[in-house]
Structure formats: structure tokens, C-alpha cells
Nucleic acid binder design. Structure first.
Lengths: 207, 207
DNA sequence: TCTATATATAGACATTCATCGATGGATGTG
DNA sequence: CACATCCATCGATGAATGTCTATATATAGA
């Protein structure tokens, strides 16, 4: 399968929002409208594009809800829809909003692919991956065979590991090198903290 | 000429920033990288596009400085350049940054165009604009002929205004209607507050 | 009612860009 | 040395889009 957003609509809304601001002319329009309400003519005079182009962009901004329109006779007065802009900016740029960017499955599909590749149908390791990235995936799976908090003699370790692969020495050594397990004179135990902390992104300004 | 940004580079940087985020695939990439460092393979597995496409987007994100690369043998590990992201978000989304969106001349060019249209080379009004928007421009110019704080008799008003146009009655009436001047039994004076306040946009979240 | 002005819409054109398959370069493995 | 893997680059393609001219619509003024 593929990675989906927790909320696909949220993604589309984000794209639309950024896309709406991803144009010099539209940014200039917003700049002009941020000062005060302005007619189309005024906006045209303040930019270096023709009137239909300005109308075109105003229509887009209006569709996005960034701008509102007040008609007075022939003249169309545009202004920033500040309330809507604030709502959008809040939902789009807030920490919560951006956190939803995280895909739901966290890339589990790739790890499954690796597991299927290296584990045979008999449940044993076909080989120990040479590449560190894949080896880590295997090791993180194997380490689950050991209880947290309990201490294992080297002979116990070997007994468990041999159910998966003959080269138990390599596996033991890798557990230590990756800090997934710790050792003290022939006693092994699982380390406390996992390596995976998810820092996340803080989009707040003036942090 | 045309409206320029106070800092054209700032505008380009803004456009580039928004444009960089204006794509679903890139947003998903950022979402994945926000959790942890990831290899290209991993990212490909987490998305529904092919590997060259992922590389393409990673190159763009790297060019924008949103992402950094750590090579380890064949494997290229990408991660969010959080420091750079924060710097960008701060400069781009901060109130100061967005305030620079305001064009320098504030649309003065349009008003000049109106003035040139309705003032003859002799300095007199060719006609009084029928459209309110343009009439206001003319009136704001004419009202400068009167000192603030001083009171004028109707006859004084007429004397001044007749230098610009015969229809002084209409001009007097317009001054009152637009609240540019006030009247009390045949005495006229300029109103205190001007109408133009510039609200500006506050892009801060959680306001 | 006729004309002028303000704005929107339609259609055409050029450019940008996301995506793909194919390929090349670099690195690790046997 | 030969081969597999990981990744970047190239060139092509189709879709999206910013801009224009020309035209339509609506309103105000004469």
C-alpha cells in the first residue's frame, strides 16, 4: 500500500493554502490589501500586470477565503478576510496541525518488506543483513524475544537466538554495538530507552 | 512604474518557501522526516511515487534548506534541518517578516494617475469626478489648501476653491459629506482625524 | 437611450513542474 | 573482479497555471 495522511483533507487544505501564497503577484496583492480595502483599479495601478490578471488572482484568493468582496456600484472593493485568515493560519500552522502531517503507518511498510525478505517461512533468519539499516530492523525484531528487566546468561541468549540463526555470536555482538542490550560479565539485559524518539517539528515562531 | 517590495529578495524567498510546501508529496516527505532520519529507500516505501520522484523532491527540499543529508556508504540519510526550518519559519511567518509584504509606494501611483487626469496643466480642475473613489482623491488634495485649526467663512472657502473650479457649492457640500471638513453656522474647519488606518496582518498563531 | 467606466470571463499561449522509465555512478558483497 | 544495491541524473511527457488580448456584463452618467 501507500502512506496516507491521518486526514487526507487536511493535506489537501495545506497544499491549497501554500499554493495560494506561492505566487509573487498574489503576495503583492495580499500586501496591498493588508493595508486597507482597495478597488480592482487601485490594485492594478499598484502592480505590473494587466487588469484581467488581477481579477484572476483575486478570484483565486477569494476561493481560498483569504479575501472578501464588497460591491458598491461598478466598483468592487476587496479586503483581507482577516478572521478567515487567522482561522486558516491557526489550523494550518499550529503545532497540532502540522503534527497531522505525520503519516499514519510511520513507514511500517518498508520494515515489513525487509522482514519478509530476511525471515523464511519457517520463521528462521535466511541471513543476517549486511546493511546496517536492514540489520537494525532485524535486530529490533529479535530483541523482543527477551523480557525487559530480566538478565540473561550468555548461554540463555544463545539458546534463544539459535532458534533464528546459527551465528549467535554476531547477533550478540550487534545487540551490544547498537546499544539495544547491555552486558556485564556474561550477563545480558535489554537497555531501557529505545533509540527512537520522535522530535517533531515546532512551527511556532519566536521560539 | 510599478509597485516593488521593500525587499524584493524577501518576496522571492517567501514565494520559494510557499512553493516548496505546495505539493502533497513534499508535505508527506516532511511528515516522514519529522519523525526521524530516513533513507531514500524508506521514504520511497512510505509514499506512492517512484524512487526518482522522491530523489527529485528531496533535492528541492535540500535546495530550500529544509532538509539535510548524511551519507553513509550507499545509503543517503535525510532528515529535517530543524534549525534552518525554524530560522525560515521565523523570518517568513513573523509579524515583521509579513509586514514587509507591504509595497513601498502604497499605491500612490494610482492616485497620481487620477490627479493627472483631472487637473489640467493650468492647475485647475477640468471636472469634478463623478465616481466617489476618484472624487475622494481630488478632495483630499484640495482640502490641503486649508490650514488645520483655522476657521473659514463660507466666502473665504469659495475664494480658495474658485481657483480650482467654478462649482464651489458642490465642493463645499462634498467636504462635509466626506467628513473632511465640519461646519457650524457658515464657519468651516478641517476635521481632526484622517480616515486611513492601516490594520496590518497578524500571522501569529494562537493569538 | 446611448456612452463611458469598472470588472469579470473566455480562449490562447508559454512556462513551469510533477512524474516516469532508463541509465550511470558509487559502494558494498561474494 | 563481477555483481547487486542504493541513489542521482537525464530526457520525455502531460497537466497545471500565470499572463495576455479580446469580449461580455453591469452600472453610472449624460
Amino acid at each position: 500500500m501507500t502512506t496516507d495522511f491521518r486526514d487526507q483533507d487536511q493535506a489537501e487544505q495545506l497544499v491549497a493554502f501554500f499554493q495560494g501564497l506561492a505566487d509573487v503577484t498574489r503576495l503583492k496583492l495580499i500586501g496591498l490589501l493588508a493595508q486597507r480595502e482597495r478597488s480592482v483599479d487601485e490594485l492594478v495601478a499598484g502592480l505590473d500586470v494587466r487588469q484581467p490578471t488581477v481579477s484572476h488572482h483575486l478570484a483565486k484568493l477569494k476561493l481560498l477565503g483569504l479575501v472578501k468582496l464588497r460591491k458598491e456600484g461598478q466598483v468592487h472593493y476587496y479586503s483581507l478576510d482577516e478572521e478567515h485568515v487567522h482561522r486558516l493560519a491557526k489550523s494550518v500552522l499550529s503545532v497540532d496541525g502540522l503534527a497531522r502531517l505525520a503519516p499514519a503507518d510511520e513507514g511500517a511498510t518498508w520494515e515489513q518488506k525487509v522482514l519478509q525478505t530476511f525471515f523464511g517461512s519457517d520463521g528462521r533468519l535466511k541471513e543476517i543483513p549486511a546493511q546496517r539499516k536492514k540489520r537494525d530492523v532485524i535486530l529490533r525484531t529479535l530483541v523482543e524475544e527477551f523480557e525487559r528487566g530480566r538478565r540473561y546468561h550468555e548461554s540463555e541468549m544463545n539458546e534463544v537466538l539459535r532458534r533464528f540463526h546459527e551465528d549467535v555470536a554476531t547477533l550478540r555482538r550487534e545487540f551490544i554495538m547498537t546499544r539495544m542490550m547491555q552486558r556485564e560479565n556474561n550477563l545480558y539485559w535489554r537497555a531501557e530507552a529505545g533509540g527512537d524518539e520522535a522530535p517533531g517539528v515546532d512551527w511556532r515562531m519566536n521560539p
